Amino acid sequence: MKYFRYFLFPLSVLYGCILSIRNFLYNHKFLKSKSYSVPVICVGNLNTGGTGKTPMIELLVRTLGEEYNLATLSRGYKRATKGFIEVNTNHSSSDVGDEPLQFKNNFPDLKVAVDANRQRGISNLLRAYPKLDMILLDDAFQHRKVKPDFSIVLTTYKDLYVRDFVLPTGNLREFKTGAKRADMIIVTKCPKDLSRTKQKNIALQLRPKPYQKLLFSTILYSEFVTNTLQKIDINSFNNFTLVTGIANPSPLVHHLKALDKKFSHEKFPDHHEFSAAEIQRLQKLPLLLTTQKDYMRLKTEFSTEKLFYLPIESRILNDPDSLKLNIEKQVFDHLE
Score class of each variant (00 low, 15 high):
Lys213Cys: 13
Ser94Thr: 13
Ile122Ala: 07
Lys34Thr: 15
Asp149Arg: 04
Leu110Pro: 07
Glu66Ala: 00
Lys2Gly: 14
Ser222Asn: 10
Asn47Thr: 09
Tyr221His: 14
Glu86Met: 03
Asn117Trp: 08
Phe332Cys: 02
Tyr221Glu: 11
Phe165Ser: 11
Val187Ser: 07
Asp139Ile: 08
Gly50Met: 12
Ala113Thr: 06
Val331Cys: 12
Ser92Leu: 15
Asp193Glu: 14
Thr156Tyr: 09
Cys42Glu: 09
Ser314Pro: 10
Gly49Thr: 06
Glu278Pro: 01
Gly50Ile: 11
Lys261Arg: 11
Asn326Asp: 14
Gln292Trp: 00
Leu101Ser: 00
Leu132Phe: 02
Asp193Thr: 11
Thr228Asn: 02
Ala277Leu: 09
Leu31Asn: 12
Leu167Ser: 01
Met184Asn: 09
Leu101Thr: 00
Ala277Ile: 08
Lys262Met: 04
Asn45Asp: 14
Ile219Arg: 04
Pro100Ile: 05
Arg181Tyr: 11
Thr177Gln: 06
Gln280Tyr: 01
Asn23His: 08
Lys2Leu: 12
Phe268His: 12
Val331Asn: 06
Tyr36Arg: 14
Glu99Leu: 05
Ala71Pro: 11
Gln292Leu: 02
Asn248Pro: 04
Asn318Phe: 07
Lys78Val: 06
Ala140Ser: 13
Ser250Arg: 04
Pro191Lys: 04
Gln212Val: 12
Asp138Pro: 01
Glu58Phe: 05
Leu335Tyr: 08
Leu19Cys: 00
Lys200Arg: 03
Gln283Cys: 09
Glu174Val: 02
Phe9Asp: 08
Lys145Ile: 04
Ile135Cys: 02
Phe4Glu: 06
Phe224Thr: 02
Leu60Thr: 04
Lys145Gln: 11
Leu325Asp: 05
Thr169Met: 15
Thr241Gly: 08
Ile185Cys: 03
His255Ile: 13
Leu125Thr: 07
Glu66Thr: 01
Lys180His: 09
Thr228Gly: 00
Ser74Asp: 15
Ile232Pro: 05
Ser94Ala: 12
Val114Met: 00
Ile85Tyr: 15
Pro208Cys: 10
Leu70His: 05
Asn326Leu: 12
Ala116Ile: 10
Pro311Gly: 06
Thr51Glu: 14
Asn238Ser: 10
Ile327Gly: 04
Thr156Gly: 06
Asp98Arg: 00
Asn227Lys: 09
Phe30Asp: 09
Ile202Ala: 04
Leu60Asn: 04
Ser94Arg: 10
Ile246Arg: 08
Ser35Ala: 13
Ser275Ile: 02
Leu73Phe: 14
Ala179Ile: 01
Val38Met: 15
Met134Glu: 03
Ser236Phe: 14
Ala80Pro: 01
Ile122Trp: 02
Lys111Glu: 05
Phe224Ala: 00
Glu301Arg: 05
Ile57Leu: 11
Leu172Trp: 10
Ser35Lys: 07
Cys17Ser: 15
Lys180Cys: 00
Arg22Asn: 03
Asn117Glu: 06
Pro286Lys: 13
Phe141Arg: 00
Phe103Arg: 11
Gln283His: 10
Lys213Ala: 11
Leu242Phe: 02
Ile219Ser: 02
Leu310Asn: 01
Ser236Glu: 13
Ser322Lys: 07
Lys213Gln: 15
Gly83Glu: 06
Thr81Ala: 04
Tyr6Thr: 07
Val166Thr: 08
Tyr309Glu: 03
Lys200Ile: 03
Ser314Arg: 05
Val187Lys: 00
Tyr221Cys: 11
Leu256Pro: 08
Thr228Cys: 00
Phe308Ala: 03
Ser93Leu: 01
Ile246Ser: 06
